[in-house]
């Protein structure tokens, strides 16, 4: 079956993941409601997302929906179950899915560091030119002249003795 995912969202009460998709055969928008069961405010959003994505009944429909998006939707649901406002949940998601540039990653344990690395890997994979890409070039040289006219990176302090 071929289906093109258009939108995916969550309904809080009763909880369900809702997918708007197009059935290519007919070119017509359809809606699929996938009830969320056994989910509490203590549940693991990542695991819930994985389970739904691998559910034999929904699997083929969710092929184009990323695990990360599903995980995020479950986070909205969990935030709601915890009595958080939408803004609070949004902020929490933001915090957990972006890198704080000021954070010293040397100070994190393995698990936390792995989390940050996986967030960074997302951008890496997006920009990555792989060896089997048709336009892959092994040796790419680009010159970036470092002359006096450059703006300072802003990370050097006035006192030159810092380093």
């Amino acid at each position: 079956m071929t289906c093109t995912a258009k939108k995916c969202g969550i309904r809080l009460q009763p909880p369900a993941i809702i997918l708007i998709y197009e059935n290519e055969m007919k070119g017509k928008s359809r809606q699929r409601i996938m009830p969320v069961r056994n989910f509490s405010k203590f549940s693991d959003c990542n695991r819930a997302a994985e389970q739904l994505k691998n559910n034999p009944r929904h699997k083929s429909y969710l092929e184009q929906v990323s695990l990360r998006q599903l995980e995020k939707l479950f986070c909205f649901l969990r935030g709601n179950l915890r009595g958080q406002s939408l803004a609070e949940t949004m902020e929490q998601i933001q915090r957990e899915t972006t890198i704080d540039p000021e954070e010293d990653l040397n100070k994190l344990d393995d698990k936390e560091l792995a989390k940050r690395k996986s967030i960074m890997d997302e951008l890496f994979e997006k920009n990555q030119k792989k060896k089997d890409d048709p336009n892959f070039v092994y040796d790419i040289e680009v010159e970036f002249p470092q002359d006096e006219q450059l703006l300072s990176c802003g990370w050097d302090t006035e006192s030159a003795d810092e380093f």
């Binding site: 890496f124 030119k129 070039v137 040796d139 790419i140």
Partner: peptide
């Protein structure tokens, strides 16, 4: 100083 990108490969080989 080298400006590089491990993702797209800029200046890595150099």
């Amino acid at each position: 100083l080298y400006f590089v990108s491990a993702a797209d490969g800029t200046n890595v080989v150099k």
